[in-house]
Lab assay of single mutants.
Amino acid sequence: HITLTNLITEETTHVVMKTDAEFVCERTLKYFLGIAGGKWVVSYFWVTQSIKERKMLNEHDFEVRGDVVNGRNHQGPKRARESQDRKIFRGLEICCYGPFTNMPTDQLEWMVQLCGASVVKELSSFTLGTGVHPIVVVQPDAWTEDNGFHAIGQMCEAPVVTREWVLDSVALYQCQELDTYLIPQIPHSHY
């Protein structure tokens, strides 16, 4: 019994991606959610070859190996599938703050939850000092008015990073160091 759908849910078992011959794909929301959820992320060749051979072929032979941004053979989907007991964002409290493009905020929040993070909706909701690490995620190029994202640091004691930190961490299924993704914050004294 196979159901085809464009939506990823808890029940989804396989995410089928358009890939090149070496099982490398573009980074899409579907790709990120498939990895975050520990699903099989496979090339569409799995479907076409299975139909051709009239049997369901082994997914291992068709698993996506990499993507056009993070590298052609990083094995993120395999790492995620085999590490669902070791979520990459466990112990983190993440607030997805401000506008985002090409990806609804609720989907970004679901993605970080699938990776083990707790989501907070407001900067004031962080449970500071409880052994949980707060992180604010923003997408600077989605902000149309002044660079308000440079002043988020005044509203909460949390590192502010770009959305790329989430996307790179999920694609590779390895929590990336914050340093290269940090957004400089204007210190309090400048006000």
Rank of each mutant, 00 (worst) to 15 (best):
L33E: 04
H133Y: 12
L7N: 15
G91R: 08
R90S: 14
F23A: 13
D61A: 15
E145A: 09
I2A: 10
A36L: 02
V24H: 05
L167W: 02
V132L: 15
F23S: 15
F149M: 05
V41E: 02
P187T: 15
C96L: 10
W143T: 04
R27L: 02
L4Q: 00
W40S: 05
Q84N: 05
C175G: 13
V160M: 07
D146G: 10
E82G: 14
M56K: 05
I152T: 14
Y97L: 06
L4A: 07
A171G: 04
G71V: 03
E11P: 09
M17N: 01
C96S: 07
H14P: 01
E93H: 07
L167G: 03
A158S: 08
V69A: 09
Q84F: 13
T105S: 14
E82P: 01
V24Y: 03
T9I: 07
Q185R: 11
S43T: 00
M103Q: 03
F23K: 07
E53V: 09
L33H: 10
V119R: 13
G91V: 06
S124P: 06
Q113L: 08
G98Q: 03
G66S: 01
F23R: 13
E145L: 14
G91P: 05
I94S: 00
V136L: 14
I35L: 11
A21M: 09
V47N: 01
T3A: 12
V68C: 00
G34V: 02
R65T: 07
S189I: 14
D106G: 09
G71F: 02
V120P: 11
F100V: 13
I152K: 14
W143P: 09
L178K: 03
P187V: 13
E157P: 15
Q176H: 00
Q75V: 10
H150N: 05
V112A: 12
Y181C: 01
G129D: 10
I186K: 07
K39T: 07
N6V: 06
F126V: 08
L182W: 11
I35Q: 02
G37N: 04
S50H: 03
H190Q: 14
I152P: 12
Q185W: 11
L114W: 01
P187L: 10
A171S: 14
V69D: 08
G66Y: 00
P159N: 15
I186T: 12
V161E: 00
I183M: 11
I2Y: 07
Q185V: 06
I94T: 05
R163H: 04
D141S: 13
R86C: 13
G98W: 04
Y44P: 01
M155R: 15
F126I: 12
G91Y: 07
V137M: 01
T12G: 01
V160P: 03
W143E: 06
L33S: 02
I88A: 06
L108R: 01
N58V: 13
L92P: 01
E59Q: 08
E82V: 04
I2F: 09
C96G: 05
V69T: 13
N70T: 07
Q174K: 14
A117F: 02
L123C: 14
I152R: 10
L182P: 02
H150C: 08
F45Y: 12
Y191R: 09
F89S: 03
E157Q: 11
T144P: 02
H188S: 10
M155T: 05
S124A: 02
V166M: 01
H190L: 12
Q139E: 15
H74A: 02
I135H: 00
G98E: 05
G38P: 01
Y191Q: 09
Y97D: 04
I2V: 07
N6W: 09
L178S: 06
V42Y: 00
C115A: 12
T12N: 00
G116L: 03
G34S: 09
L178Q: 04
W143C: 07
M111I: 12
E145V: 14
G153W: 10
I2T: 09
R86F: 11
Q49K: 15
F23C: 07
T19H: 00
L123F: 15
A80I: 00
E59Y: 14
H188P: 09
M103T: 10
C95P: 00
T5F: 06
D141K: 08
M111A: 05
V42S: 04
M155L: 04
T3C: 14
Q185E: 03
L167T: 12
M111L: 12
G34A: 08
D85Y: 09
L108S: 00
P187S: 09
V68L: 14
K121V: 15
L182E: 10
V42E: 00
M111K: 02
K52A: 06
L92S: 06
T5G: 03
D85P: 12
M103E: 04
Y97T: 10
V161S: 06
G38K: 13
S118T: 11
M17L: 03
E122P: 03
Y44V: 12
M111E: 01
S189W: 08
Y191T: 12
E10A: 10
G116R: 00
L178V: 08
I51S: 07
P77E: 01
V41Q: 01
G66F: 00
I51L: 12
F32S: 01
Y44L: 08
D106C: 13
Q113M: 13
R163C: 07
D106A: 03
E109Y: 06
I2R: 06
K52L: 10
V166P: 04
L167K: 00
V64E: 02
S43V: 00
A117R: 00
I88S: 00
Q49V: 09
Y31S: 02
E93W: 11
A117S: 10
C115I: 15
G131N: 06
E11F: 11
D20T: 07
L57M: 07
F62M: 04
P99R: 11
V120F: 04
M17V: 11
K87D: 12
Q174M: 11
Y97C: 02
N147Q: 08
Q185C: 14
Q84S: 14
V69Q: 06
T105M: 14
Q174S: 05
E93G: 15
N102Y: 05
E26S: 12
A171E: 05
V120T: 09
E164P: 13
C95Q: 05
E10S: 13
N73F: 07
L108I: 05
I183K: 09
M155Q: 14
F89A: 02
R27M: 01
